[in-house]
């Protein structure tokens, strides 16, 4: 555990030293804010129109019409951003041969992998925390329900974990950061749209494909439902990705 903390600390140090983090966070916040502002503007226009006619304001609520769509869009932006966060993790160590320092030290491979994963996770969590100004703003001007917000963030964090798990795995495959980013982006997007295959597949396979899709599991969280099957899906996904990373790195030593 001590070693994992050391790795996290070093990773975070190098994130905050490199311009990548600042550029990425800025782009993320600009995109998210633009989308949020548009959704909010549309909502306030609808509320205004509903206010003109008595009884039309039923069904207008901040949670369903502003927060949930904003979070959904955030999930898309994260899909584009996270490969850039994770591409460095092992690819850079391999390219600059610094991985020998880790491998020649008395620490376990799983401590290294966990450290890398958690460091990326904390970085993305920080980006998400910065974006939470939007929810606070809604809090000031309206009365959103807290439950779906909390579960929404939980769902987003779990999904982020899956993205990062894929990204770390991809970066363990290659010493080229661009290849790593492309592989992880492709794989993330595939896991996102895999549910689309459900319509043309048979009923059994369709159900499997739908269950595998990353985005379908987010829906419940955004509605305010924390279903244990969704939580288990995300956690299994994360652990499986990290397990594959372990296999890859371990087998590289034997080749």
């Amino acid at each position: 555990m001590k070693n994992t903390l050391l790795i996290i600390k070093r990773e975070l140090g190098s994130f905050f030293q490199s311009p990548i983090f600042y550029v990425l966070t800025t782009v993320f916040l600009v995109l998210y804010s633009f989308i949020f502002q548009n959704i909010l503007a549309f909502f306030s226009m609808q509320s205004y129109q509903a206010g003109q006619i008595q009884g039309m304001n039923i069904g207008l609520n901040l949670n369903d019409m502003v927060i949930a769509p904003s979070f959904q869009n955030m999930a898309v932006i994260l899909l584009l951003m996270i490969p850039i966060v994770t591409m460095r993790s092992f690819s850079e160590e391999k390219k600059s041969k610094t991985i020998t320092l880790l491998l020649s030290s008395p620490i376990h491979l799983k401590e290294i992998i966990l450290g890398k994963f958690l460091a990326c996770f904390l970085v993305v969590a920080l980006m998400m925390a910065l974006s939470s100004y939007s929810v606070m703003f809604l809090w000031m001007v309206g009365e959103p329900e807290i439950g779906p917000i909390v579960s929404g963030y939980l769902g987003l964090l779990l999904m982020t974990g899956c993205y990062i798990s894929i990204g770390v795995f991809a970066s363990s495959l290659t010493d080229n950061q661009i290849i790593s980013a492309v592989i992880s982006f492709g794989f993330m997007l595939f896991m996102w749209i895999i549910g689309w295959g459900a319509q043309s597949a048979g009923p059994n396979l369709g159900a499997v494909l739908e269950y595998l899709s990353l985005i379908d599991h987010l829906e419940n969280f955004l509605k305010g439902i924390i279903d244990s099957s969704d939580v288990i899906y995300y956690l299994t996904f994360i652990v499986f990705g990290l397990f594959l990373t372990h296999r890859i790195l371990d087998s590289k030593r034997w080749r």
Partner: peptide, 25 residues
């Protein structure tokens, strides 16, 4: 171990790097 290519994190300060190496060693 000093490998042929010293495993140095180019973006780190020397003393931080050594403290990190000490920790994981």
């Amino acid at each position: 171990y000093l490998p042929e290519n010293p495993p140095l994190y180019q973006d780190m300060v020397v003393s931080d790097y050594l403290a990190f190496s000490a920790g994981i060693r």
